[in-house]
Design a protein around this nucleic acid. Structure first.
Lengths: 116, 116
DNA sequence: CGGGATCCTTACTGATACTG
DNA sequence: CAGTATCAGTAAGGATCCCG
């Protein structure tokens, strides 16, 4: 591979990584995905209760972003009063590997920094 | 597993994920790691040139954080004027899997959102 | 060359109150 | 219940200049 080829490939890889990071960024995204994933389907107020410290404003915002990225599906149920259900899309479920990797590495990292 | 057990395990996992994200967050961290990793050893001004758009202030800051997290090693060479070399630590190299996963997922994600 | 210090702008978050 | 609106504080990031 020539230098230029490398740099083109490299730039594409970096962009791909950034794409992933952008999606997962934000203080609560992974916690939200994690919560929905575990319970399979989860309502707004349930998630609000699952995650310690999150405000409804932030939850609302992060859910919107996740929906925009097609990681979760939002369903309004015809109840009184209205309830809204969130679930992972197929695409959202493909995050599982990454989440597992991040978990494993995080544990190793903590040992490396604090433990020893 | 009881509900409480789940919640304890779950909290630990979430903390682990957050640890990982904290380390990798920041606009340039992965680009920096990527640059050092490819060239094996790399000087401050080289990295500055590798990464389009980064300022010396940010590079300096991010390098410090990466060093604190023991992902890179900083070596001052006794030249005139001073040169400083950065390289990945063994721990830093263990990020490879995550970076690969993030790359793969990022590509898939881009297709999912834009492509189709 | 490899940064540090300063100033400034914007993005992210939180708290609280309010609405259909 | 599931959000929006508003206000306000903090932190992230950029631009520029300075120093050993």
């Amino acid at each position: 591979m020539t230098c230029t080829d490398f740099e083109k490939t490299h730039k594409n890889e970096m962009r791909a990584i950034q794409d992933s990071m952008d999606v997962l960024n934000g203080k609560w995204k992974i916690a939200i995905i994690s919560s929905i994933c575990y319970y399979n389907k989860r309502r707004f107020s349930d998630i609000l209760g699952d995650i310690e410290g999150i405000s409804n404003k932030m939850l609302s915002k992060e859910l919107k972003e996740l929906e925009l990225n097609k990681l979760i599906k939002r369903t309004v149920l015809d109840t009184q009063p209205v309830t809204v259900q969130y679930e992972l899309t197929e695409h959202g479920k493909t995050l599982q590997t990454i989440i597992n990797n991040l978990t494993d590495w995080g544990i190793k990292h903590r040992k490396e920094i604090i433990g020893k």
